[in-house]
Design a protein around this nucleic acid. Structure first.
Lengths: 107, 107
DNA sequence: TTTATATATTGCAATATTACGATATTAAAT
DNA sequence: ATTTAATATCGTAATATTGCAATATATAAA
């Protein structure tokens, strides 16, 4: 990006935008869908499945963790990344509140 | 961004990510909220309200238009930008389908 | 027609994101 | 203790986004 002046906006606006932003990359959408379909996940699967380098997948997972959408548990040598359903629902609700309270029209 | 390999993902994944991405900036969230509150809008209001330069606001409006969330009508010397409620609802539904079909957990 | 006003576009500098190779870390297996 | 395997982190190149001044465009008013 560039010089994003986040201090100009409310915390609510910044938080909302952050949720949207983290979901705003097709690799992260794909990662979430894959984890959801598997009902179990280790990261090495994702590297094959998504087709990006291991370092890149790891970075995307980190961003998804940063807003709490994923939780990771150590499972022996690997990681088990799962969707945090509680947080998932909370964020879905927040986005819906935004959509529902921001749709009046004028023309 | 960097080298986003959009050809690796499905159209659905790319579309979803694009919706999220456009909403993923606090200025654009703020613009939508302001337009919604006014029930009428001319762009010059936004420049004062949001506190970014006119060129910057114009650019954000363009991105919101790019996914159809805003429609603009010429109104004399100014523009009347409004939320396209039909499109708004369509996108909200698409995002909810994503949330609802992507939340199974494993751990 | 000229002037004033509103918005869009262009060009550019600053910053952020993405991707990946190389390397570090961590835990299991030998 | 060493080796192997899985994931994280670092460093960096390529590209994208943001923001703004300057300028172009378009419409209304004079």
């Amino acid at each position: 990006m560039g010089i994003t002046k986040s201090q100009m906006f409310t915390d609510r606006q910044n938080d909302l935008a952050q949720f949207f932003k983290v979901l705003g990359h097709p690799a992260r959408v794909a990662i979430l869908q894959y984890i959801s379909n598997q009902n179990a996940c280790i990261c090495s699967d994702l590297v094959e499945e998504i087709g990006l380098a291991q370092a890149t997948i790891s970075q995307h997972l980190k961003e998804l963790k940063s807003i709490g959408l994923l939780k990771g548990e150590v499972e022996g040598k690997s990681m088990c990344y799962c969707i945090n359903v509680e947080r998932w629902t909370t964020i879905q609700n927040k986005l819906n509140v935004f959509f529902n309270t921001t749709k009046s029209n004028c023309c």
